[in-house]
Amino acid sequence: MQIDLKGRTALVTGSTQGIGAAIAEGLARAGARVGVNGRSAERTEEAVARLLRDVPGAELVPVAADVATEEGAHRAVDTLGQVDVLVNNLGVFGTADPLEITDEEWRRYFEVNVLAAVRLTRLLLPGMTERGWGRVLNIASDSAVVTPAEMIHYGMSKTALLAVSRGFAKQAAGTGVTVNSVIAGPTHTGGVEDFVYQLVDRDLPWDEAQRVFMREHRPQSLLQRLIEPEEIAHMVVYLSSEQASATTGGALRVDGGYVDSILP
């Protein structure tokens, strides 16, 4: 399958590292002009420089803005102008005793993981529908369906994101714009390495720590390993393409078989 995104502009939020960086790279390889987003100008410029080393000649635009705020969302949109593909990847996660999560922390998870995506969709969807083409992709998580006891606030936010995706897909019905969510399973990123070491012996080498984590805390995984960020990016690039024109309102799984269901 030849995916060609030349002439399209994509905004990938939270794309200075991890899954977001892999998505930005995948879209750039497909020919898209990609807005690489981070909160600080320094980190964003560094991420752009790394991506240019991996994808020489890519058209990358540094978008330094905290898109979890209204001001930052407007700055990101103003920086890029027309956006054809919006990937709402920004998110926070961490473990917490459910009875110790404060109201402030509940609100923070909703603000960053849900409302940031809603706000950018609200800003960019009208232009997409007016032009008759667009893609909105929300990066969700297996925790949206299989809520971990140690991450209830995170699971809540990702469940809400599935509802947001379905609702906006209905809003865009018949316009040529598709809206989908991608359910990412346990993925190997720097943040997840820290998370793994919160739950297993910190003295273990990484390969062994990963195996212990999957065996003890994610035994449902059929892949039996952490997913690499590039594997999430492959799905996102496909859903951003012309070839995915009939896929909308969906929650598509790249979870290594973690969610025990025969339905998406």
Score class of each variant (00 low, 15 high):
R107E: 14
G18F: 05
A10G: 05
P98V: 11
A28V: 00
V196E: 10
L90R: 11
E45C: 02
R8E: 14
I101H: 02
F195S: 09
S15L: 13
A10Q: 07
V182S: 08
M151N: 04
E59L: 15
H234S: 11
E71S: 13
L80A: 13
T44S: 04
A209M: 05
A10D: 07
L52S: 10
L52P: 00
G81F: 07
Q171E: 14
P126N: 11
A244I: 01
T178A: 13
K158G: 01
V146R: 11
V36L: 14
H234E: 15
G127C: 11
R107P: 00
D255N: 06
P98L: 15
A172T: 04
R33K: 14
P62M: 10
G176P: 08
R119T: 10
G155P: 00
E130Q: 14
A144M: 10
A68G: 15
V259D: 05
S157V: 04
A65E: 00
R43W: 01
I101W: 00
G72W: 01
T69L: 01
F168Q: 05
V118R: 03
E130A: 15
D97L: 14
E45H: 05
L125C: 07
R215G: 08
E71Q: 15
A251D: 13
V87I: 15
D207L: 00
Q17Y: 02
A58V: 05
E228C: 08
R202V: 10
L199K: 15
S240N: 02
M156K: 04
A64Y: 09
T159F: 01
G31F: 08
V12E: 07
D97N: 15
Q17I: 04
W206N: 00
W206K: 04
T147I: 15
T79P: 03
S245A: 13
A251T: 05
P126G: 08
V259E: 12
I23F: 01
V63E: 03
V177S: 12
I183H: 04
I139D: 00
S40A: 13
R131I: 03
M235Y: 03
L162W: 00
V136G: 03
R218C: 10
A172Q: 07
D54P: 00
V48S: 05
L51E: 11
I23G: 03
A172G: 06
G18V: 09
W133H: 08
E42W: 04
V146G: 04
I227G: 01
K158C: 03
T189R: 10
S165I: 01
